[in-house]
């Protein structure tokens, strides 16, 4: 895992070419000017130390960090790395630290920030460059380890027949937990994840809670205990619950962690 040496905040480096965003007074521009300080580091160029770079642009009505960062890349600095996909809060690509707090950048409005604020990559995950981190690799590893799929015998299924029935409320309960977008906010807000490299995080425990609920999955608590019944699983949680506070989907992580922990404790006593 790549770690970033912490260097003092500094406002440095005038944007190349001196290009500026919309001139003050231009249509769509407000009087307010934003200083966005971005923590920059490229693991492929380790000779350049991690540093803060300030980009200055004019705020605009309805501006999100998606719009702001796109404008920075287009007009000020084409080398800046970050990730956006849906820009609508549903794909989980753009989580980053906004003033030190994990959040989806696409759903962060500049009007809710001060005129100067910082952006930094999510901790815990492997750094790709600047604000881009490899959540995909981490999540795939978590899925493989926790076997996050419905376990059942498929061979006998006949797709021409009516589907198996499920109580409507149960389907809703499963969907409630299935809404997780694996953005990584919970992991980067987790004290245990900082100390234990293999901790599954709230995202992993929530997955287990989801499959525990699902009658299509033939696994029982003994099977789940094998997956999360240790300090890298649900017993590693210190109940700081940063995960719950930062989840952009407002998943009931606090309840799910407590619930799975109770079930696993009961299992461990057997």
């Amino acid at each position: 895992m790549t770690t970033i040496p912490i260097v003092p905040l500094q406002s440095c480096l005038q944007a190349p070419g001196g290009a500026r965003a919309a001139a003050p007074g231009a249509p769509g521009a407000l009087a307010r000017r934003l200083d966005i300080r971005v923590l920059r580091f490229d693991p492929l160029r380790p000779e350049v130390a991690a540093h803060w770079q300030t980009y200055t642009l004019d705020d605009a009505t309805g501006m999100t960090l998606f719009i702001a960062l796109s404008e920075i890349r287009e007009k000020l600095d084409p080398s800046l790395q970050f990730d956006f996909v849906c820009r609508a809060g549903i794909c989980g690509s753009c989580a980053m630290l906004v003033n030190g707090r994990p959040a989806l950048a696409c759903r962060t409005l500049t009007k809710d920030q001060g005129s100067s604020f910082t952006l930094a990559p999510l901790p815990v995950f492997e750094l790709i460059g600047d604000l881009s981190v490899n959540t995909g690799k981490w999540m795939r590893g978590m899925s493989e380890r926790l076997q996050t799929w419905v376990h059942q015998q498929e061979a006998a299924r006949d797709l021409t027949r009516l589907e198996a029935r499920m109580e409507p409320e149960l389907a809703e309960k499963i969907y409630e937990l299935d809404r997780c977008i694996q953005c990584g906010c919970c992991v980067s807000a987790c004290g245990t994840a900082r100390m234990r490299e293999d901790f599954v995080g709230a995202v992993g425990v929530n997955k287990i809670a989801r499959f525990r609920l699902d009658p299509r999955d033939t696994r029982d608590d003994a099977d789940f205990y094998e997956l999360v019944g240790d300090d890298d699983g649900v017993f590693g949680c210190m109940s700081l619950l940063g995960c719950h506070d930062v989840c952009p989907k407002q998943l009931p992580l606090q309840t799910q962690i407590a619930f799975v922990r109770r079930k696993m404790v009961a299992m461990g006593w057997k």
Partner: peptide
């Protein structure tokens, strides 16, 4: 449905 999609019922 068999793979786990929680279709509304």
């Amino acid at each position: 449905a068999a793979w786990g999609v929680p279709w509304s019922r």
